[in-house]
């Protein structure tokens, strides 16, 4: 049993979108399906020339935060959304009734309707592919050219992610909501 999480050195992101492509390829996401599973948010430069605030511009890679207290799981009427043995928040498509409550409850806009199964899906840290094969990687992490993403077991003190979280300052998105995300943004 592990407790998987991801650290994002987001200031290294160059918005090449290789992670989105790799995710689509790995998980069979339809072409043109925008913001399915992962995306990169863009914050543009603020101010007017010549007083441009170049520090205001940033790229923020995002996806399901795999919260320890996931609102999407709490609101699911049929327990279609569940925590697996690795703490990954996952969806059992057979049980999903497409009430869309999880889409409204997720503070991170991480849930989307998969047009093939007509159920609400989300990132599952490549649990059906890489994790199932025993690898401790995700497609997005593996492909990132600037090594933004570090994936690993938060419970293992020797893992790279644990080391990073011990030595680098970090924050979580919307942590005031008490969701306890397992995605950490390194500063």
């Amino acid at each position: 049993m592990a407790r998987y999480g991801m650290a994002l050195d987001y200031k290294n992101c160059i918005n090449c979108k290789a992670c989105e492509v790799a995710c689509k390829e790995e998980n069979g996401i339809l072409m043109g399906a925008d913001k399915h599973r992962i995306w990169v948010g863009v914050k543009e430069i603020e101010g007017e020339y010549p007083f441009l605030s170049i520090v205001s511009s940033s790229f923020e890679p995002s996806q399901c935060q795999h919260c320890d207290d996931a609102p999407c799981q709490e609101v699911c009427p049929t327990n279609a959304t569940y925590y697996d043995e690795n703490g990954v928040v996952r969806v059992n498509a057979e049980k999903c009734i497409l009430c869309s409550y999880c889409m409204n409850a997720c503070p991170y806009d991480a849930r989307y309707v998969d047009d093939r199964t007509m159920t609400v899906d989300k990132c599952n840290f490549c649990s059906d592919t890489r994790l199932a094969r025993g690898e401790t990687t995700t497609a997005c992490q593996n492909t990132c050219p600037t090594k933004v993403r570090t994936f690993g077991d938060l419970d293992d003190p020797n893992s790279e992610i644990s080391e990073l979280l011990r030595t680098r300052e970090h924050f979580s998105l919307k942590s005031h909501l008490g969701t306890k995300p397992k995605l950490f943004y390194l500063t």
């Binding site: 709490e74 609101v75 699911c76 009427p77 049929t78 049980k95 009734i97 497409l98 009430c99 007509m118």
Partner: peptide, 26 residues
């Protein structure tokens, strides 16, 4: 509006989400 109403009838009983307000309401 519910995408899978039959699934709802089945899994509302088989795996009830007791923390869900929709489950209680329905």
């Amino acid at each position: 509006e519910i995408g899978h109403p039959v699934t709802m009838l089945i899994y509302n009983v088989l795996s009830p989400g007791l923390t869900s307000a929709i489950w209680w309401m329905g």
